[in-house]
Design a binder for these strands. Structure first.
Lengths: 222, 222
DNA sequence: CACTGTTTTAAACATTCGTTTATTGGTGAC
DNA sequence: GTCACCAATAAACGAATGTTTAAAACAGTG
């Protein structure tokens, strides 16, 4: 079982360093020396640095999508055709996100990685995530549509990305923000506490009144 | 005036490349070759790559802070001691942000850079921005505090960053999101239109009901 | 033990990076 | 004209990167 040991030790070390510094700023030599494995082990087991990055994400996202799909299955069975309330959908997603890294104590790392996926993923990573995990997101947005029939499709689309921005931006920049917050308020902020603060804000954002005036482009007047 | 020409050409090229790829992924050779200047010109005029990055930010943030301070001055004079409504404060900030890059047509670049400042700034950039532009942000948050006396300080701090995340995330990823939106809704979305959609969402987020339960860390129980 | 396939290791490889140096070009002052 | 000063250039430097190679160590099987 020397192989598994080496592989997991590389992944454990890489995910922490990636989360701390980003991808380009983390060299394979830093990873392998800290993980106490040989430099060539990365290319031997993963093929390339790109593949290592994808493997780091897969180790989080695979169990997440599995859990999330299962949770949505259970939800749809509970509500048997009735529309699932928005709060329940959001709560379910939050719970699925929180459960995965709870098994290992690395919720912060997971959040930072999600942030990096958006801000640092030029090509391969964004494509990889879209291909492998796009379907679960589509399923979720379909359920949100049923839960918010009063919203025009375009409005809901933008608002979902508004709150996505809030969550990713906040949690991925958590360390820096936490430093400021602790200095200003002498209050340590856990990720769980942040999620508690996020809940009413996200709901209010999605349920805000529709904007005044009309969109600039008028498709059909009648 | 050959100096100014070289300097601005470096800055113009660097800001676009930084916004597209990030800092570590953009080499000085890529910048100088695309800008059609000599490689050594960067170190000659700016000293180092770090200083170039800071100069790119300064070229946006200096005029912004000047404008924003002036706008807040005018606002405080108008309201003469009365508290300025939240919507007015937000509107003023939005206008200041939009005006700066309007002079050059690069709002997208500006937003992308702001996103990078949070996600990629390890040390020097975050420190630089905090030192040089922290005061205007403090002034703004003080006014927001007066406009939202019902919010606990910590709650307001986090919510301001929540909406900051929304704005930066949305506008910095505008191109990709716009492509999806146009494909799905056959509707072109201008930045002005996006701001119109953002307004009620941001206000609703800041004025959302307080979260249930208490923070994990209880400082003083009474 | 001998053989086979897999994993680990040290060393080298070819690039690429930011930075520095030394030289040349140009411009205004006196 | 020449001197001084700033800018631009080509070339090189040393360090760091991802990747590959070839040999060694190991494990299990017959």
């Amino acid at each position: 079982m020397a192989q598994t040991d080496t592989v997991t030790r590389i992944l454990d070390t890489a995910e922490v360093l990636f989360a701390e510094r980003g991808f380009a700023e983390t060299s394979l030599r830093t990873i392998t020396s800290k993980a106490k494995v040989n430099l060539a082990a990365v290319n031997y087991h993963f093929g390339s640095k790109k593949s290592l990055i994808q493997a780091v994400f897969a180790r989080y996202l695979d169990p997440f999508t599995e859990r999330f799909h299962a949770a949505l299955d259970a939800l749809e069975q509970d509500y048997q055709g009735q529309t699932i309330p928005l709060e329940v959908l959001l709560e379910t997603m939050a719970r699925s996100v929180l459960e995965v890294p709870a098994e290992r104590n690395s919720l912060k790392v997971f959040m930072k990685l999600l942030g990096l996926a958006y801000s640092q993923a030029q090509g391969h990573l964004r494509r990889y995530i879209q291909e492998h995990y796009g379907s679960v997101f589509t399923r979720f947005t379909d359920l949100v549509r049923q839960a918010t029939p009063e919203l025009p499709d375009a409005e809901r689309f933008w608002r979902l990305h508004f709150v996505l921005g809030t969550v990713i931006f906040t949690l991925s920049g958590l360390d820096a923000l936490r430093d400021i917050a602790e200095k200003d308020f002498d209050e340590h902020v856990s990720v769980r506490d942040l999620v508690r603060r996020l809940r009413p804000v996200v709901v209010a954002a999605l349920q805000a009144p529709l904007p005044e005036g009309a969109p600039e482009s008028i498709k059909a007047a009648g």
